[in-house]
Structures are given as C-alpha cells and as structure tokens.
C-alpha cells in the first residue's frame, strides 16, 4: 500500500532520537514507529475521537486539539521536528499553521496532495475536477479546502521566510525527484526557518 510506503519515506527524513510533534497524527502509525524504532519522543495531535483512541492504543502520547486554534500550547523551537502530513490542505488557516509549524519546530516536514500531478491537470483540462487516490473526493464534499501544487508551496515557503532543506514528490510510495510538480501525486517539503 502506497500510504504505508509514504510513511516509510517520511520516517527516513526524521533523525533518530528527535523530539517530534506530529500534527494530525491520525491513528498514530508514524509516531509509534518513530518512538519504537528510532528512539524519538514527543506527541501526536489529533482532533478525531476515533483516531485519538487508536493512537492511545498504540501507546503514544496524543493530545486532542483542533489545529485551527493554532499551537499556543507549544513553545518556540520546542521540537526537533514538526510533522504536518496530509493535514495542511484541510485547514482554513493553512498559512498560519505553516508559520506555527516553523515556529514550534526546528525543522518542519509537510506533505500534501499535489494538485498539479498530470492526471489532475488532464482532468481539469477535460473540464472536471480530479478524483484520484490522492484527491479522492468530489469537489462538493472535499475536506481539501486548500488545494495547491508542489510549485505553489515553494512560493509560499519563500514568502514565509522558510528555507527548504529537501523536497520531492511521492508517487505510489516512491520518491519522485525529477519534475515532481507534474509527476508526483504527493508533495513533501522539509524546511526550517531562515
């Protein structure tokens, strides 16, 4: 399953022993993996009751919080790595959250569906919004209220004074480093504050 491999690729970006904040940790797979296999510590943040309980069951520390309310609970640079995987596109205040991610973490890792992936472009060129594995919703019920592209994020990061340490795309769980804006369904950025 590609989502599983996506997580493996992203886990490789997190240095062993890091203090990690996982924003929108879902069922806690990644953080549990980082804690158990890479000696990391930290917290998951999750809003959903079912996911919260699943994360608790995995033995990680998880805090129920709505990311739309910001990260006031966390101090500046209080984590080595802040993960924001597949959540940024759901947030009304996506830019503010990106700033918060950069404030709280010494490095941030963000992933989101790349709207410029060629099948999406093809779909729009045919006059219809794309419905794909990375963007599996119809336009009228999508939780992805901030759809953007790999290239868009580079602009947003620059605008917010972030230096990109690494970036690539993902397709079927494999990194895409050549022409990711068209060839990758998911965009991944690792960055720090300048």
């Amino acid at each position: 399953m590609s989502e599983r491999r996506d997580l493996d690729v992203i886990a490789d970006l997190v240095p062993a022993g890091s203090r990690v904040l996982d924003l929108g940790c879902g069922r806690g797979e990644l953080l549990a993996h980082l804690v158990q296999h890479k000696g990391c510590t930290g917290y998951g943040i999750e809003i959903d009751d079912t996911n919260l309980q699943a994360s608790l069951a995995r033995g990680i520390d998880v805090i129920q919080l709505n990311l739309e309310e910001g990260l006031a609970m966390f101090g500046d640079a209080s984590f080595d790595v802040v993960l924001q995987l597949d959540t940024l596109q759901h947030l009304r205040n996506a830019e503010k959250m990106l700033q918060e991610t950069a404030r709280v973490g010494r490095t941030g890792i963000v992933s989101f569906p790349n709207f410029a992936h060629w099948p999406n472009r093809l779909s729009v060129a045919r006059g219809r919004m794309p419905v794909t594995r990375a963007l599996p919703y119809e336009w009228y019920d999508t939780p992805n209220i901030r759809v953007g592209t790999y290239a868009d994020f580079e602009v947003l990061a620059r605008r917010n004074g972030l230096s990109i340490l690494d970036s690539f795309g993902l397709r079927d769980g494999r990194p895409v480093r050549f022409w990711p804006n068209a060839r990758a369904s998911v965009a991944v950025f690792k960055f720090e504050r300048r």
Partner: peptide
C-alpha cells in the same frame, strides 16, 4: 485542563489529553 497539558508539555513529560464533546 489545557493549562495542565501545556505545563506538562513544557516539561516534556508524558501526557495524553482527550476533550470529549
């Protein structure tokens, strides 16, 4: 409760928190 969570997080202590609707 969040005040408590914040204090524990600041100390890097183990804490989980559920806010039941």
């Amino acid at each position: 409760s969040r005040e408590l969570v914040k204090a524990l997080v600041t100390n890097r202590q183990h804490v989980s928190y559920a806010e039941i609707d």
